[in-house]
């Protein structure tokens, strides 16, 4: 018998930091898609950010550990539909990323969806000094979800959470 309310389970999950970007939670990241309470158990749907995201396994383990503390052994399902998008992040979450030193993703536009589309939205603002005198160093950063930029204003490299 599950005695917790669905909102309490969401609160618990919201206290789990993203293993790669601990400034935000796995709920804020948009990985937790649904929580369903059944008669005897709880089911949690999660979705990967990128197909090969190595952190997904760790997130699953943390969900299990967190819910075990309240006596639950959740059934965790990985779902692919709808595909994860950075558009699910709230403005508040994006601000947390920026304060942590990662430039937040822009809003996904339709033009982004074709490989040859000109999706140049201009330079990304530096999360440290807000300068827009920045350039893209590499489309791929330290994790699948980030790209590498350089700020000419404060002469620092920084990462951006890629718009996806």
């Amino acid at each position: 018998m599950v005695t917790l309310e669905s909102s309490e389970i969401w609160d618990l999950l919201n206290s789990i930091p993203d293993p790669e970007v601990p400034a935000i939670s796995i709920v804020e990241l948009g990985v937790v898609r649904d929580v369903r309470i059944t008669d005897s158990n709880v089911e949690v749907d999660i979705t990967p950010t990128y197909s090969g995201c190595p952190a997904l396994k760790s997130m699953e383990e943390q969900i299990r550990a967190k819910l075990l503390l309240v006596g639950l052994t959740p059934i965790i399902k990985t779902i692919y539909k709808p595909a994860w998008t950075t558009d699910w992040m709230s403005d508040e979450t994006k601000e947390k990323l920026r304060a942590y030193g990662i430039a937040p993703p822009e809003k996904l536009s339709f033009e982004n969806l074709h490989p040859f589309a000109n999706n140049d939205k201009g330079p990304v603002a530096c999360p440290f000094c807000s300068s827009t005198d920045t350039s893209l160093t590499s489309r791929f950063g330290s994790t699948a979800c980030k790209a590498l930029h350089f700020c000419n204003g404060c002469r620092q490299p920084f990462e951006q959470f890629k718009c996806h």
Partner: peptide, 20 residues
């Protein structure tokens, strides 16, 4: 270094797709 990281990331995406 940047392309080394890029190719590892691309490979990871493709492995993830194959897993699905």
């Amino acid at each position: 270094l940047e392309e080394d990281i890029a190719m590892s990331n691309v490979a990871l995406d493709l492995i993830g797709q194959s897993r699905g």
